[in-house]
Design a protein around this nucleic acid. Structure first.
Length: 344
DNA sequence: AAGTCGGGGCT
DNA sequence: AGCCCAGACTT
């Protein structure tokens, strides 16, 4: 296929980006490692959310070597609240691969960089185009929305293979002289102008080349089917304090949801018995005191949480930790909420 | 291709 | 109450 006005489209997009782009921390560098970190943090995560995490991360792990050496607990503490915690583990694994297999230099080609843990098609293209100025596609949700409108693509973007259509389109459209600004320009346009609802077409630098704008209904695109069914689980969360003021913590399994994060003991409602729990830990407990009751929504499930505080003694097992020790451990947002309530 | 994996902001 | 966000990995 051959798109008309390709030269004009490139020029309009790149010029707009160079003038209107936001001043973001990772736009002050072309260090492949730093671009890599930013792209991983930005997966399914908004720019405004990422900024403080990125800055803190770069203060603690300014180089690939320092990240490779970091204790996982310390690494996860920097990721606490950002979500999708496997990203952090995969990033560290990827960084270690670079040190072992590539002499500490992030690969500059798609074949090798795609082998790194946590680096998929999008992140590979983003690093290659932004850090190395390679003419590689980097197709994310923004790009699919923008190009579905510009090129009038009605394929269902919820279907995985549809992404190939957009990757092929970018390969033809990308400005070989300005790959970084072109790819970032598409994403910036999606974030600032070509938004999901009520796109600001009158401010768009490429509206004259946009089929959906010219036909009048850009907000109808892209087409996306799918909706996921939500599961619900109820838990009792127990904050147990012994006579020395220490609190009982447990670490979640190394796999699955919130892997390796720490939490107060959780009992699934209707499945785990509180009496069994108390027996197991050989505790004498005073009547429990209600803390918070709230709902926490994940992507595909909802936790309904009842939390309780209880003073205990004679506990013989478990990780009983001081206030200061707990502060150093990575916990999920629902646990942090409960912890904050305890402290108040 | 479908399911898993966080959390927050916007409509 | 959904939808979406600079997605990747597992099955």
């Amino acid at each position: 296929m051959n798109y008309p006005y390709v030269t004009e489209f490139r020029q309009s997009l790149v010029e707009w980006f160079n003038v209107e782009k936001r001043d973001l921390p990772w736009r002050h560098t072309t260090d492949p490692y730093k671009i890599w970190v930013s792209e991983v943090m930005l997966q399914q995560t908004r720019v405004d959310t990422v900024i403080p995490y990125y800055n803190r991360f770069m203060e603690s792990f300014p180089t690939l070597e320092l990240l490779a050496e970091a204790p996982q607990e310390y690494l996860l503490k920097h990721w606490e609240g950002l979500g999708y915690y496997s990203r952090a583990r995969n990033l560290q694994a990827g960084v270690r691969e670079v040190l072992e297999n590539y002499g500490g230099v992030v690969p500059d080609n798609r074949h090798e960089i795609s082998k790194l843990k946590g680096v998929g098609p999008y992140t590979a293209g983003a690093i290659l185009s932004i850090a190395y100025n390679k003419p590689e596609h980097a197709v994310d949700g923004n790009v699919m929305r923008v190009l579905s409108r510009v090129l009038n693509i009605h394929e269902d973007i919820a279907v995985p293979k549809t992404k190939k259509i957009f990757e092929a389109a970018v390969e033809e459209l990308i400005d070989p002289e300005n790959t970084s600004s072109f790819n970032q320009g598409l994403m910036e346009l999606g974030a600032l102008i070509c938004t999901p609802t009520s796109p600001k077409c009158l401010l768009c630098p490429v509206r004259e080349y946009c089929t959906a704008f010219n036909e009048g209904e850009p907000e109808k695109l892209p087409i996306k089917s799918k909706k996921v069914k939500m599961k619900h689980i109820s838990y009792d969360v127990l904050v147990c304090q012994d006579d020395k003021g220490r609190i009982l913590l447990e670490q979640r399994s190394a796999e699955g949801l919130l892997a390796n994060l720490w939490q107060f003991p959780m009992l699934e409602h209707g499945k785990d018995s509180i009496d069994t729990f108390i027996n197991e830990y050989a505790m004498n407990v005073q009547p429990k005191q209600e803390l918070l009751t709230f709902k926490h929504v994940f992507s595909h499930l909802t936790w309904h949480i009842n939390s309780y505080f209880m003073k205990c003694n004679s506990a013989v097992k478990g990780e009983w930790l001081t206030h200061e020790q707990i502060e150093l451990l990575p916990m999920s947002v629902p646990m942090l909420k409960i912890w904050q309530e305890i402290k108040d």
